[in-house]
Nucleic acid binder design. Structure first.
Lengths: 106, 106
DNA sequence: CTAACATATAGCTGCGTAGTTATAGATTGA
DNA sequence: TCAATCTATAACTACGCAGCTATATGTTAG
């Protein structure tokens, strides 16, 4: 699990892509066709977005005949959570340092 | 606190911008000049990024003479945390539903 | 085998934006 | 007031990429 924060952020920065991911989180496995119906964009556009999501590890495809069922891989969000926690950690450490400094100034 | 997920994701999707934000989280208030030294891009580019970060509420500027000290507003990340929790929530609910279904099938 | 269906790829177009240099605006010190 | 310093804005360029249509690939049904 490298810190591929860039890939995750860039992938989720697109609204269409985020909507696709959200739908899969809400409703589980979905075929490309089903996703296309609600996406408001063309099927090729959906396919391309799914490719990007897959590349980022956010989604997995399971072939079933001529359908492919895509599902959200919630674990891929850990990268996001890690980054956020890291930022919050830095934030707190700075206050801890300040506190220490103030204590030493008694 | 609207769900301006789009703004937050788009803002943090840029590596230069994320690096600036990270640095402010790590080291607290920084002047534009100090940030520019480590950013690897020109001062105008840094200024523009700071403008975008500010617009997204991720950063705040405090004027001090001819310097402006920018600081990370860690609270703005709550939008990100909310979204992640929401996704995880959907995920879990789907398993709960499945569990219920299986129970009713006894 | 063939037609119909499901998804992916190719090729193109337009827009958004990150970067640049040049310059303006603002603030301080002499 | 003038020069130096710090930051922001203007104007431009280049590139990435999201969207489209058309078509290829793959799969099942008949």
């Amino acid at each position: 699990m490298q810190p591929n924060h860039d890939l995750i952020f860039k992938t989720l920065a697109d609204p269409s892509r985020r909507a696709l991911f959200e739908r899969m989180c809400r409703e589980g496995e979905q075929t490309v066709g089903a996703l296309t119906v609600h996406a408001g964009i063309s099927q090729p556009a959906v396919s391309k977005h799914l490719g990007v999501l897959k590349q980022a590890g956010l989604v997995l495809g399971r072939q079933d005949g001529r359908n492919i069922h895509y599902s959200a891989q919630i674990g891929a969000l850990s990268s996001l959570i890690d980054w956020t926690n890291q930022m919050a950690g830095f934030w707190e450490n700075r206050f801890d340092d300040l506190e220490d400094l103030l204590k030493r100034m008694d």
